[in-house]
Structure formats: C-alpha cells, structure tokens
C-alpha cells in the first residue's frame, strides 16, 4: 500500500518536467501516449505504489497541477 497519493490535473500540465527532477523515487515522467488540451504530454505517476506523499513535486510545479495526500 502506497504511503502517498498524487492527483495530477493533466489538462493543466505544461510538460516542463520540473517535478520529475525532485521526485525522490523517480516515479514521475511525461506520458508520451497522451496529449492534453494545451498540447503537451502531461506528467504521470509511473509507479503509484512507490509514492511517499512528500509533495516535493507539487512544490516544484510552476502550474500547481499536483495535489498530494498522505496516510
């Protein structure tokens, strides 16, 4: 069971990848299969089970697209 959960507002993501640089478990990556309303590949959680809910990704995101929850 994952300790944390992130909710990504994919339609607001601009695909800048800043969040991916700070994730301690490296479980954030752009999803090359998706294109959002803005025309970007949005970021996605590659391994939700690994999320610890540290919220570093959310604090790094310039577009406030990530919400974080923790047990």
């Amino acid at each position: 069971m994952a300790k944390g959960k992130v909710v990504i507002n994919e339609d607001r993501c601009k695909g800048c990848e800043l969040c991916t640089t700070v994730c301690p478990h490296k479980i954030l990556a752009l999803d090359p299969k998706k294109i959002n309303k803005l025309g970007y590949h949005p970021v996605t959680l590659t391994d939700p089970e690994e999320c610890i809910g540290c919220a570093l990704c959310a604090r790094m995101c310039p577009d406030c697209v990530i919400e974080v929850y923790r047990e």
Binding site: K5, D63, E67, Y69, R70
Partner: peptide, 15 residues
C-alpha cells in the same frame, strides 16, 4: 488520506 498539498485559496483556479 489527508491532503498535504493543495492549491492555495488565493491562487485563482485557472491555467
């Protein structure tokens, strides 16, 4: 689960 990070109220909910 408890929220640990959400959009601040004073930040408009727009792109």
């Amino acid at each position: 689960m408890k929220p640990v990070f959400t959009r601040p109220r004073s930040l408009a909910d727009v792109s």
